[in-house]
Design a binder for these strands. Structure first.
Lengths: 240, 240
DNA sequence: CGTCTAATTGAGTTTGGTCAAATGGAGTGG
DNA sequence: CCACTCCATTTGACCAAACTCAATTAGACG
């Protein structure tokens, strides 16, 4: 089932009825694939459907006048990469593939129908976008007030918890599919500085990296240094 | 009518029926007042209602371990300060009064009823939270990638456009109800540096300040320096 | 006139940026 | 199997934007 990861993600926050699970699956009208570095959605284009990430990693990015870039969100399987285009219609940022990836296309008409017939499912989708917004606030705080080292520690903690919560990571290990350049774009740092900070994190024996794979050696310290508290990810069940 | 500013804000994005306008007004069960610096909602508390700002300025804030603070959003009349607590139930940040202010209390039960009976109004409220999220992204980009000067220019442009869009400012003038300390907390800067940057903006004759009031002398240049493009505020009408 | 808060100034420091080059690894074609 | 290429990572030397700390000044208010 293509929506398995999404269902898992939502079920962490509140139970879905079998009917709702089926409805979700039927939302997908089409499936599309993109290669690494491809632009999935260009900033400013009018949208008539949203996309659910089925496989791979994707980022939301803004480009500044001088060409510098800010990544405002990193998506993994089970994330809607642009559910917000359902109400906004037109995005303020681009969406790019960080790896080769597959996405399910969900027409806005189908989502509109959900808002007409399925109040609980509507609230769950709304919740999904609210967790994105909470993540934006957390990143803003990290970018505005944390040191580079704390910020990168925070990012590593977040990626691990999110991957782990949908079953894509365990034992404090995961595949880091971001280059140091991309980590810099996510944290508002330069690639050179990211490199130095990562060396420091390894020297302090907080993490270990082998090529693209990361192992968190000392979770408690990493979490503390990154001031990481997963409350913003809303990982508990509650009637919504 | 207490929801006049909210209605104005929503009507910019899509027409509301007379029935919807009435329903909005009836959402408010109660009215509360807070003094400057009061905490309206403390991070982590479970919520059973949301609050609509009727008068004054309010901020969303996160506090770090060492006591430093990040403001993630500034609210003016007509803004829901915590509509996101409807789906999240529990906020990842606090909400504090920047000035004396009045708020309308909207019980989650009433919002739930809206999601059951009023799909269009539901989408409009969802849109409202999506504009908050778009603002978070814009701030994140500004914090991560803009110079202090550009960032503060951007903030001034945003505040002016938002105030102007609900009729609370015109002629490129508005009352800046933030201290330099608070501007720093919003931009991830220290108050001392904000002070120096503001002096620079005045010296370049981009803005003029008299006590708390700001006049934008050269809108085009300020907008350019701040890389301010109001697209993220979604100030156009479209069927939602 | 005294108090309180916010704004301003000065001197010295630090974090992270810039620029340019070197290294390392994975994949490719001969 | 070996050069070659393409990225990404790493290193070094130097720089600058923003921070720190500690005073001082200015306004608003009672």
């Amino acid at each position: 089932m293509r929506t398995a990861d999404l269902v898992k993600k939502l079920q962490i926050r509140d139970a879905l009825s079998p009917n709702e699970v089926t409805l979700l699956e039927n939302l997908i009208s089409d499936e599309v694939a993109f290669g690494r570095h491809d632009t999935i959605i260009k900033e400013g284009e009018h949208q008539t459907s949203s996309r659910l990430l089925l496989q791979g990693w994707v980022a939301r990015t803004k480009i500044l006048n001088d060409g510098r870039r800010q990544i405002s969100q990193i998506h993994i399987a089970g994330d809607f990469v642009d559910l917000h285009s359902f109400t906004l219609k037109c995005l303020d940022h681009s969406i790019v593939a960080l790896t080769d990836c597959r996405l399910g296309v969900v027409p806005h008409d189908a989502l509109r129908k959900v808002t007409e017939d399925q109040p609980h499912l509507t609230r769950m989708l709304w919740l999904n976008t609210m967790i994105d917004a909470a993540t934006h606030r957390e990143w803003l705080t990290a970018t505005g007030r944390l040191s580079a080292q704390s910020h990168i520690a925070h990012l590593i903690c977040e990626l691990y918890v999110r991957l782990q919560s949908v079953g894509l990571a365990r034992d404090h290990r995961f595949d880091m599919l971001l280059t140091q350049e991309e980590i810099g774009d996510a944290c508002g740092l330069t690639a050179v500085h990211v490199n130095r900070v990562m060396q420091e994190l390894r020297a302090r024996e907080l993490i270990e990296t082998k090529q693209r794979s990361v192992r968190i050696i000392d979770w408690d310290s990493l979490q503390k240094i990154g001031e990481f508290d997963p409350i913003y990810l809303n990982l508990w069940s509650e009637p919504r």
